[in-house]
Design a protein around this nucleic acid. Structure first.
Ligand SMILES: [Mn+2]
Ligand SMILES: [Mn+2]
Ligand SMILES: [Zn+2]
Ligand SMILES: [Zn+2]
Lengths: 138, 138
DNA sequence: ATATATTTTGCAACGCTGTTGCATATTCAT
DNA sequence: ATGAATATGCAACAGCGTTGCAAAATATAT
């Protein structure tokens, strides 16, 4: 496990630091999306707030994680499962937020629906956010 | 026009004030969605920042306007066109953000696509945000 | 129309989230 | 091991939104 984290960081041309290893571990162990606040709590406040912001931004830039816009204007982050690279994300999947447990899921196995727009409009990117109850909470 | 604004406010059991009339006029004249910052600019800073926050929140509570979550974590507001009432919104339509002019459209005439979720998940609400180029900018 | 009660507004102060500059510490390459 | 490059922590700051409270505006009753 720690080996694969090493690989992820090195192939992204990032220094391997305690901080980055710990944050990547949190994502891998969680499975679901995490917020900045989640990471602060889960890490036991061992590293600085600013460092977490910078680490998350770096990971997004490198295509290691992607952001998930939410209805309450917080930002969630989740590991990229598809072949995302530096500056080129391919995370076009539905995101699901459970109203009971609060978990945010990346539904990457679900087909993205076709969205219709009026004549003259053209689509570049589609974000779909679904609220409901997850399978663990039903 | 001012008469219909009067009606909107009174049927929502709200006092008719200069402030609320002005903000409703801005929405009616704009046609597209507005942010808090937009309103501050358009109103010429004649009323307080806090009053705008409270007015927007009141309008949302009363079912006069609805919020639109955006990918850059700002909040946009738009007039409710469907029969929204206090505490019960029915604004299930696609929102479109033009990457050229920045306008946010409520596409209430477009059919909402069917989103598939895995077995065991149930849907309560769907938010669809489309980025692209609008008909005025193509 | 006037007086009273209710609601709204503006101001000041505050909290939360995220950012930047810079000196120090850590990691990397030789 | 040494020096260069990179990452971190700290402090300070900015922006956005919230709250308490007194003054002003609006609605209601007489
Ligand atoms: Mn995702
Ligand atoms: Mn809308
Ligand atoms: Zn759940
Ligand atoms: Zn446009």
């Amino acid at each position: 496990m720690k080996n694969s984290i090493n690989t992820i960081l090195k192939t992204s041309q990032l220094s391997v630091t305690t901080n980055r290893i710990k944050i990547l571990e949190l994502f891998q162990n969680s499975g679901n999306a995490l917020s900045h606040a989640d990471i602060e709590k889960l890490s036991g406040k061992h590293f600085d707030r600013v460092t977490i912001y910078r680490t998350l931004q770096t990971f997004v830039d490198k295509g290691i994680i992607h952001t998930i816009p939410t209805a309450d204007n917080s930002i969630m982050y989740a590991l990229c499962k598809e072949a995302c690279t530096s500056g080129h994300h391919h995370d076009d999947h539905v995101h699901f937020i459970c109203e009971v447990c609060g978990s945010t899921y990346c539904l990457d196995n679900i087909s993205l629906p076709q969205v219709n727009v009026p004549k003259g409009f053209s689509i570049n990117q589609t974000n779909i956010l679904v609220h409901g109850v997850c399978k663990n909470c039903k």
